[in-house]
Amino acid sequence: MFDHVKFGVSDFAASKAFFLKALEPIGVSVAGEGEPSYGIELVAKGSTSLVLFETKEKPAHLHLAFAAENRQQVEDFYRLALEAGAKDNGPPGLRPRYHANYFAAFVIGPDGHNIEMVCHHP
Rank of each mutant, 00 (worst) to 15 (best):
G85L: 03
A44M: 03
E57N: 09
N89F: 01
P92E: 05
P96K: 12
S37N: 11
N70S: 00
A105C: 05
L23R: 11
A13V: 04
L20M: 15
Y38P: 01
H61S: 08
V9T: 01
A84I: 02
S29R: 14
P36E: 07
A17Y: 03
D3S: 14
A67V: 08
E54Q: 15
V28M: 06
K87T: 06
S29A: 12
P59A: 11
G93M: 06
P25G: 02
R97G: 08
V51E: 13
E24R: 14
T48D: 08
L64A: 04
G39L: 13
L64S: 11
G27D: 04
A65Y: 07
A31W: 08
A22L: 13
T55Q: 06
G8Q: 06
A81Q: 15
G39S: 04
L94G: 03
G90K: 14
E83Q: 15
A105G: 15
T48V: 03
I40S: 13
L50R: 09
A67W: 08
Y98E: 00
V30Q: 13
L94T: 03
K6V: 08
S15R: 02
A31G: 15
N89T: 06
V107E: 15
F77Y: 13
R97Q: 11
V30I: 13
T48F: 03
L52N: 07
V43S: 15
E69F: 05
A60P: 02
K45P: 05
G46V: 06
F19N: 08
